[in-house]
Amino acid sequence: MKILGNVIDDQGRCTHYSNKVDTISIKFKCCGEYYPCYKCHEENANHKIQPWNKEDFDEKAIFCGVCKNELTIREYMNHTNCKHCNTLFNPNCSKHFHIYFETDNNSTCIS
Rank of each mutant, 00 (worst) to 15 (best):
M1E: 15
M1P: 06
L4C: 08
L4D: 13
G5W: 00
V7R: 06
I8F: 05
D10C: 03
Q11E: 12
Q11W: 13
G12R: 12
G12D: 05
R13V: 01
T15Q: 15
H16E: 03
Y17E: 05
S18P: 01
V21Q: 15
V21S: 15
D22L: 09
D22F: 11
T23K: 14
S25G: 10
I26V: 14
K27I: 02
K27E: 04
F28G: 01
K29W: 01
G32A: 08
G32I: 04
E33V: 14
E33S: 09
E33K: 15
Y34L: 00
Y34W: 01
Y35P: 00
P36L: 00
C40M: 00
H41F: 13
E42F: 11
I49T: 09
P51A: 10
P51L: 04
W52P: 00
N53E: 14
N53Q: 15
E55R: 09
E55W: 04
E55D: 11
D56F: 05
F57R: 12
D58M: 04
E59T: 13
A61K: 05
I62C: 02
C64W: 12
G65W: 08
C67L: 05
E70Y: 10
R74C: 06
Y76F: 13
Y76Q: 01
N78L: 10
N78S: 11
H79P: 04
H79M: 05
C82M: 02
K83C: 06
N86Q: 15
F89H: 12
N90G: 02
N90W: 07
C93F: 09
C93V: 15
S94T: 13
S94D: 11
Y100C: 07
E102T: 02
T103I: 06
T103A: 03
N105L: 14
N105E: 15
S107E: 15
T108Q: 15
C109Q: 06
S111F: 12
